[in-house]
Every structure is written in C-alpha cells, then in structure tokens.
Nucleic acid binder design. Structure first.
Lengths: 212, 212
DNA sequence: TAGATTGTTAATCGATTAACAATC
DNA sequence: TAGATTGTTAATCGATTAACAATC
C-alpha cells in the first residue's frame, strides 16, 4: 500500500459496506457522497476523503455506482480472499457464533471448533465439527489457519493465546474479556469487550444525550 | 456536567476499569500515570488528561491509589446506579448473553427475557424468566426499563426498536446487525456489529502489522 | 454546453503529546 | 528539604471539514 491508512478510516469501511448493501437491496444504482453522507451521518467531504484512500471509485458529475463501490470497498478489506478460521471454546457464546455468525459474508471460512468437554467433543454444531483441544496443535500444523476465535473461559485465555502465537497464528478474535497483550507485532488481535459497550451506554444514559 | 467529554475518553474508561481490576487482584495499591501508560499502551500525558476530565483522582508526588481510582472511574460511568435491563430474543445469541454476560458487573440488572417461540416462552434460562413478547408493552408500562438488549432476527429489528422508543425506552443495546436509525435524540443506541470487528481484522491481516 | 459531483488541496478543528509549575 | 508525580497549559499532530478546480 502507498502510505498508512488511518484506523478510523478502516473502521468505517464495514459501515459503508452495510449501507451499500441496504441501498443495493432497495434497487438504488447510484449515489452521491452528499446523499450517502446524509444517510450515514457523515459529511460528504469525509466520505470522499475516505473513499479516495483506495482510489477513484466515483465519477465526476455522476456520483458513485453502488455495486461498483461496494466491490471496491470489499476489495480494500480483502473480503474476497477467504480467511480460514477455527473457534476454540464451544460453550454458550462459541455455540452462538458457530450457529449464527455469517463467517462467509465476512470473507472467512470456519473450518472447525475445539473444546475440552467430553460431551461436546465429537458432536457437530450447525454442521461444524467439534474436536478435542488436544488435537489443536497438530491441526494447526496441518492446516493454514488465519484467524482463531477465542470463546473460552478467562482462565485459559492467556495460555491459549501464547500457544497460538507460538504455532504461528496471525489473527486472534478475542471474546474472552481478557486484554491479551501479545508482544509479537505481526499478530493482529481484535479484543471484543461487550461490557465496554454496555458501560459506555450507561454513561450516556445518565449524562444525557446520545453520542453524536 | 461541566463541559462535554469526548467520546474517545468515555470509550477508554472501561479499559481503565479492567486494568485497575487486574492490578487490584494482583495486590497493587498505587500506580503512576507513566506505569499505567506503559501497561496499557497509552502515554502518561493522555492518562492524566483523561482522568482529569473527572477530577483529581491522583496525588502529586505519589500517583494514583488503585482502588480509589477504580471507584472514581466507576462513579464517572455511573456503574453503581443499577440499570434495569430486559432482553428481547432468546435465540442462540440472547441465550448466551443471558447465561454468560455479567450484567451486574456493568451496573445493570436483567429483569427478564422476551421471545415469541412457544418452546421458549415460560422456561427459565439461567434463572431468567422468558416471557411472551405480547406481554412486552404492558411490562414496560409497569416496570422501569433503562436498557433493552435486542437479540432478535434482523427482520424484526426496525419495528421493535420503533415500538420501544414509543414506549419511552431510552437505551437500546442492539445486536441485530441492522443499523437502527432512531430520530429521537434522547435515545442512546449502541450498535454491536461483530462482523465489523472481523472485517477490520481481515484488513490488518492482509495489509500487514497490527493496528498500533 | 451547463450542471453536477468528484478528487484533491487548504483551512479548521479537536485530540494527543510535551512541558513545567504546583504540591505532596 | 529533595524527589516524585500530578494537574494543567502550550505545542504538535492528525482527522475532519470546507473550498474549488477538474471533468464527466
């Protein structure tokens, strides 16, 4: 890539995808930055700046073709290249992710799940096989895994993450609630803290007005 | 409040809480902004700026008392005042939240759940009663509900949100994946988009290096 | 061509970092 | 008192917004 694109821009890309999908579904073929901005609560300027980080998706005097722009952003996010994923921890939360989360729509493919509990190992959850964690390392050796979804108890979080990094895993989608700090700079960790989201809500509820 | 505190600061508060809890558990009694910064990946300056939005938690020449600071931030977030919550949609995801999510630790109290499916209505999930959605409006009339957790199918998201706002609900924690746009400025909506998180991970995995 | 709207540069605004006096 | 570290002001940096020439 040319020069580093700010994290703020990257975080907005999935929102663009969502809105463009809504527009597409409604049969809208083209849209201007100002109209898209109105719909998403952004300024037209910001939208043009954001999109221009990745090249000229638009056409002067016309606007943006919805489908083309959608593909362009999907390309920037690399959504077309499938990421292989596995999930460790098939408890309530892991189970819900396996069953409901649309990995394919995010350009990912869930290979299988791992758990330690005898009454889970061996079963299939929504078509996904649950293996024993004892087979994890050998699985990682034999398969290319891009992303590991961590949905196991907090007590296991750090040791498991360390093991994964030693096995060369480069992406950890961490739902454990523990802030993993991993020294290896090449590892991408996304910490999902649902409680953060509720706590900030609490702040705004009590201190009046929404965020923006 | 004095003057408006930026959303960036608010979003960092739960992270402070987490780190302080880790320190507390490890028996650490005091900490300086520079050491806390080292641990959390912030500058000491930023930490002092953040904390001073809420008043002098620290003591010159000494640092911050871990427990006191924790209480101070919890106070700023209003964590001690309980928020009443209900959850609508007891499917996989709702079920997982009811079972695993620590509402109490976030200063919230889950009153009950609602669903439409006959084989869910009437049962208890981890001690939480599941009621029929037909009883939702009367429940809202008879109980003060601060936060509604939305974990129902996308097709129901917009209509349900609209109903909730009409019933005077001021907080919606939205897991449906649909961007609710609610005109009423006094309603606080937290949209949780797990897919956003995975998509941005995908970007960094392919374009090298972690975020920071 | 005239109108519209982008791509892109310049101006503004806000957030982070640095510096340092206050003070424990 | 001397050392440490905050609270707070000033400087810097980056992100957002505004403006406008390019062009479809």
């Amino acid at each position: 890539m040319k020069y580093r694109i700010s994290a703020n821009v990257i975080k907005r890309l999935p929102r663009y995808i969502r809105q463009l999908d809504v527009l597409s579904a409604a049969g809208v073929e083209k849209i201007s930055s100002s109209e898209l901005g109105r719909q998403m609560g952004f300024t037209a300027s910001q939208i043009r700046q954001d999109l221009n980080c990745f090249g000229g998706f638009g056409q002067q005097g016309y606007g943006y073709n919805v489908k083309q722009l959608r593909e362009g952003i999907a390309g920037a996010l690399g959504m077309e290249k499938n990421l292989n994923a596995i999930i460790i921890g098939a408890g309530n939360f892991g189970h819900a992710l396996i069953t409901n989360f649309k990995f394919e729509e995010c350009g990912a493919h869930l290979l299988c799940a791992f758990d330690i509990s005898p009454d889970k190992v061996g079963i299939k959850v929504a078509g996904t096989e649950v293996r024993h964690v004892d087979t994890l390392v050998s699985f990682l050796e034999e398969n290319h895994v891009d992303v590991v979804v961590l949905t196991l108890p907090q007590s296991e979080a750090d040791s498991t993450a360390e093991l994964l990094v030693r096995c060369g895993v480069k992406g950890i989608w961490n739902f454990t609630g523990v802030d993993l700090d991993i020294a290896d700079e090449s590892v991408v960790v996304e910490n999902v803290h649902l409680s953060d989201s509720l706590l900030t809500m609490g702040y705004y509820l009590r201190n009046g007005e929404g965020k923006d």
